[in-house]
């Protein structure tokens, strides 16, 4: 009997965690529309998630664009033939804006901001600051989770849009300026085949990744226990869970969202 329980334990833990995050999501969505709104924390979080992530997003998007440009160039050169590389423009733009940049931004922000959320809220938990919020009649969900979630929901698409521009520039720089591909064909093809919907798809994904990062970060922080070591473990868990969920959700969103609105 005990052995059976042992086998089932991971399933119970998984279901328990699913229940916890589901409940947190539901509470957060309800509280978004209920005053008081924590405007100053919201603005602070916009800065923390958005402005302060710009350097890391710039670097990852630029090198992501460069390497994507490089591989696309090689692909066209090898399989289609010399001179065909200029047709890589729309592929680079589509691949970057729909997949690579939202994923890179999501993973970078999960590592930079999601971990910080868990560490901050976890420290508040173990130093009884969360209990202090309760004792003052304040709902920690409204005070801590809602502003972070809403800020992440809005800032991730902004960062992704910014990353798209930098990434596409990276692809352009590699193909046109380094490899000498014909710029007018490259740009003409990009403008002809790249659709606004491709860009929007990436932004929709990014918004959802923002929700995942903030909710997982806050959830892990709120359940942190066991002193500094416990906060450390929660922070690691937060980054790992967010990253895995982002990659999984990305696949399903790619499958569900229409490839093109003109189809």
């Amino acid at each position: 009997m005990n052995r059976g329980k042992g086998w089932l334990e991971p399933l119970f833990v998984f279901l328990e965690n699913l229940g916890e995050i589901g409940l947190l999501t539901w509470k957060t969505l309800k509280n978004i529309f209920r005053p008081p709104w924590e405007k100053s924390i919201f603005i602070q979080q916009l800065e923390e998630i958005g402005v302060r992530s710009l350097p890391v997003v710039s670097l990852t998007a630029a090198f992501g664009g460069l390497v994507f440009g490089l591989q696309t160039y090689i692909g066209f050169h090898r399989y289609v033939g010399p001179g065909s590389e200029a047709y890589g423009g729309p592929i680079i733009s589509l691949g970057l804006s729909k997949e690579l940049i939202p994923i890179l931004v999501g993973l970078m922000v999960a590592g930079r901001v999601g971990s910080a959320m868990t560490a901050e809220i976890g420290t508040m938990k173990i130093t009884e600051q969360i209990d202090a919020l309760f004792s003052l009649g304040a709902d920690p969900n409204k005070y801590l989770v809602v502003p972070r979630t809403v800020a992440a929901f809005f800032m991730l698409p902004c960062l992704t849009l910014y990353g798209d521009v930098i990434g596409m520039l990276g692809g352009f720089v590699y193909n046109i300026m380094i490899m000498g591909v014909n710029s007018s064909i490259y740009l003409k093809n990009t403008l002809l085949y790249f659709e606004l919907w491709d860009l929007i798809t990436g932004l929709i994904k990014a918004s959802i990744f923002g929700l995942i990062i903030a909710l997982v970060g806050c959830w892990q922080g709120l359940k942190a226990e066991g002193g500094a070591a416990g906060v450390g473990r929660a922070t690691t868990r937060s980054v790992v869970i967010s990253s895995i969920v982002i990659l999984m959700v990305n696949f399903f969103l790619s499958k569900v969202l229409p490839a093109s609105l003109s189809q």
Binding site: E120, T123, M124, T127, E128, Q129, D131, A132, F134, S135, L136, G137, A138, D139
Partner: peptide
């Protein structure tokens, strides 16, 4: 319910053992 508890808690003031000030 949790919502009703928030209202009741406003009748109370709690001094924590370690003060539990909001450090930010």
């Amino acid at each position: 319910s949790e919502e009703e508890l928030f209202k009741i808690r406003r009748k109370f003031g709690l001094l924590f053992q370690n003060a539990a000030l909001f450090d930010s």
